Simulated scan of single mutants.
Amino acid sequence: MYDPRQRPVALRLLAAGFTIAEVHRQTGVPKSTLGYWKKHPEKAASRTPPLCPRCHDRAVDPAAYSYLLGLYLGDGHLARQHNGVYRLEIACSDAWPGLIDAAAEAVGTVLSSRVGRRQKPGCTMVGSYSKHWPCLFPQHGPGAKHTRKIELEGWQREIVDARTEEFVRGLIHSDGCRVINRVRKRLRGGDRWYEYPRYNFANVSLDIQRMFTGALDRLGVEWTQMNARNVSVAKREAVARLDGFVGPKY
C-alpha cells in the first residue's frame, strides 16, 4: 500500500515523461499501478483516494465525526473484506429517510470516500469502503459490542467533549427515539389522560450507556435509568434541551 499523498506527485512525473521505473523509485507507487495510470491518465486523475485523518495528519470534521461516532456505537459495524479493506455500515430504518441522508453525509464528510446504500428488509445500510475505518473507529473488534469493553481513546474523548451535542444526537438517532408518553390518572370524576414527550435510549452495552449518560451530565440534561438497558429523559426542561439539537427522527 503506497502513501496516497504520493499520487499527485506520481501523476505529475508521469505527465512530464519520467519512466515508470523512475516514478516508482521516487514515490513508492507500485509499477503495475503506475502502468495503469499512464495508460488511463483521465481515470487516474479522477480517482484520488481519501486521506485518513489519523494516518496522514489530516484534520477531521469534529461535528461530523462526533455524530458518526454516535451512529457507529449504536447501529454501526465494520466488516473486513478479503483484500484487507473494511466496509463501514450504519443500519438506518427506512421509516426515517432524513436519517439515512444525514448518516451518508457524515460518512462522506469524515473520510471523503464514496458512500453507498444497500437495501435490506426494513432498513438501508449506509456504507463505505476503506482500509482506514479501523483507524477512526478503534472500538472495532470481534463479537457484539456488549460482549467486550468499549471505551474511547484520548483523541476521541477530546472531540466528543468539544462536540457533545452531536455525539448525543448520533446515539439517539441510532438507539434512541422521541415519543409521546401517555399516563392515566384515576379521578373521582373519571379517568384523565396526560401526554408528554420523552426521549428513550436503549443499548445493552453498559459502556455505551455510560458514554450516553456522561454526555447528558456534561450538557446538564437530567436522565433516569429505567432498567438494565433503557435510559429515559422525561423532565420538561431536559426534553426541551434535547429538542434544541436532536428533535424527532424524520
Rank of each mutant, 00 (worst) to 15 (best):
145 K>R: 15
29 V>C: 02
45 A>N: 05
194 Y>A: 12
16 A>L: 09
130 S>V: 11
37 W>V: 04
150 I>H: 05
181 N>R: 12
82 H>E: 08
53 P>V: 09
201 F>N: 00
56 H>G: 03
136 L>N: 01
200 N>D: 09
170 G>K: 02
59 A>K: 13
215 A>H: 01
95 A>K: 07
70 G>T: 03
48 T>I: 13
177 C>H: 08
127 G>M: 15
102 A>W: 00
67 Y>C: 04
224 T>F: 13
101 D>G: 12
209 Q>R: 12
161 D>Q: 13
116 G>Q: 08
93 S>D: 07
36 Y>E: 10
73 L>K: 05
103 A>W: 03
80 R>C: 06
117 R>Q: 12
201 F>V: 00
180 I>C: 11
143 G>L: 10
237 E>Y: 06
168 V>T: 04
31 K>E: 12
141 G>Y: 02
230 N>C: 13
151 E>H: 14
203 N>Q: 07
124 T>Y: 00
139 Q>G: 01
16 A>R: 12
143 G>H: 06
206 L>Y: 03
219 L>S: 02
18 F>G: 00
50 P>A: 15
59 A>F: 14
67 Y>D: 01
134 P>Q: 04
169 R>G: 00
74 G>Q: 03
229 R>V: 15
28 G>S: 07
204 V>M: 07
190 G>H: 11
28 G>W: 06
172 I>R: 01
200 N>A: 14
152 L>I: 10
49 P>C: 06
12 R>K: 09
155 W>I: 13
110 V>E: 01
51 L>R: 06
202 A>D: 10
132 H>F: 14
243 D>R: 04
67 Y>H: 07
181 N>C: 09
21 A>I: 10
113 S>L: 15
121 P>I: 11
52 C>N: 07
181 N>I: 12
143 G>S: 08
149 K>R: 10
232 S>M: 12
126 V>S: 00
108 G>Y: 05
49 P>F: 02
158 E>V: 13
71 L>F: 03
161 D>G: 15
50 P>W: 12
57 D>A: 14
185 K>M: 14
28 G>D: 07
63 A>N: 06
106 A>Q: 00
227 N>K: 05
95 A>T: 03
3 D>L: 13
35 G>W: 04
4 P>Q: 04
103 A>K: 03
197 P>W: 03
114 R>G: 14
234 A>M: 09
199 Y>H: 00
2 Y>C: 09
250 Y>W: 09
37 W>D: 01
92 C>P: 03
132 H>D: 09
35 G>C: 07
136 L>P: 01
187 L>I: 08
112 S>I: 00
100 I>C: 09
93 S>L: 13
97 P>R: 09
